[in-house]
Design a protein around this nucleic acid. Structure first.
Lengths: 220, 220
DNA sequence: ACATGTGAACAGCTTCACAGCT
DNA sequence: AGCTGTGAAGCTGTTCACATGT
């Protein structure tokens, strides 16, 4: 399939075709009227705009289960990410290969960053070590940090941090799950009122307390 | 601090205080005029609305590095999630404890789901096994799935799927990183034109080809 | 006096609809 | 004839500003 229309792409993505065309138009005019978009050319242009055609060396700090999982993750290489180094504070880990890459000790952090021109760091350490690792990464020249540790990192201006909380996605599922259950069976879930903190007390007789509080439901 | 105002919360969260009040108002009227919101009461009401006060048994299927990392993840318990079982297809894993929970074989999947009343499943298998695992989870009664495998799962209506792609966050960072670099040094990144697929050829003399295409920059 | 809760104004994003090009 | 690219219309989500309640 050498060419594709906005209608086809929109159907596949589940969005409106006008929106898709307008979004593409922000990148430039890469389509041909009466024909559609040349697939290979479009893929390249989008990839380039997203930065996928560049080589991004990254370091992963904290090689526990999560760090190892990230090091083994296949999706990185195909998107331009290259794991330049794995770093861990445990001297016993040093030299051990994980995903074919030998783990290096935290002492080497600064030289690794500098020598490889790394601007993106991944923190997969325990919460207690995260801020300190972050500070060292930033001092060594890293300007983008992906944080898996359950801590809010503070960084100077000009440094981007994205925090990944693995339980937030579960919370979203649980939220919808709760809704599903609620639709079938009424508000049975609000029954364990023993654990409910009392509402701030007032003299008003209109305060019905938690049991009566079935909150207004948000639209969709 | 027993009480907090929308102004304080908004400042802490980096949003507008009117938005915060309007959002809270969808859950009910949990504030007191002239005073603010009772912290403990507000926390409880939000927790309940999000489903955090319920007990959610979950199963994790695929106990590789990522599955193990998830099993060890501390953030789950405090949000009402309880790891009911760890499941893996490798018979050699069966019985081995991970995060204090013995791994069970895939053969037991259906009975585990049923016996524990599990409605949320986490898939951390390789891509090839994901759809099959998904089908078995759904058939056994699971209605929400968190998918870490790099596959798009197809499920019947009424089942929610959320896909977590660990490289997407890195892509977002790389995108911003590219922008930072572009601002300082002009469009040096578009130089490797050897790898650029040719634009669809036309007879028009106005087609400048990829080198001239510096796409319009999106606002913000 | 002070802070919530909310109608009304505003802004930004999405969709429509069609001119313009192949 | 067909499909893109885009002004204009429409809509959704945000912010203002103040009436209302403590």
């Amino acid at each position: 399939m050498p060419t594709v229309s906005s209608e086809e792409l929109a159907a596949a993505a589940g969005v409106n075709s006008a929106k898709l065309r307008k979004d593409f138009s922000y990148l430039g005019s890469y389509g041909t009227r009466g024909v559609g978009y040349d697939v290979e050319y479009l893929v390249y242009q989008i990839s380039r705009e997203l930065g996928l055609t560049q080589d991004w060396p990254v370091v992963i700090v904290g090689i526990g289960n999560l760090g190892a999982a990230l090091a083994n993750y296949g999706g990185f290489a195909s998107r331009g990410f290259r794991v330049a180094a794995l770093i861990d504070a445990d001297p016993a880990m040093a030299g051990k290969p994980v995903a074919g890459i030998p783990v290096q000790h935290t002492d080497e952090l600064e030289s690794i960053i500098t020598d490889n021109g790394v601007s993106i760091g991944v923190i997969a350490t325990p919460a207690g070590a995260a801020q300190q690792v972050c500070d060292r990464l930033v001092a060594a020249g890293v300007t983008s940090i992906l944080n898996f540790a359950p801590t809010v990192l503070s960084v100077p201006d000009g440094v981007d941090v994205r925090k990944v909380d693995l339980s937030i996605e579960l919370q979203i599922l649980a939220f919808h799950e709760q809704r599903k259950a609620g639709e079938e069976a009424g508000a049975t879930a609000a029954a364990d009122s023993a654990a409910v903190p009392a509402a701030p007390r007032t003299d008003s007789a209109t305060d019905q307390g938690p049991d009566g509080d079935v909150p207004a439901v948000m639209p969709a």
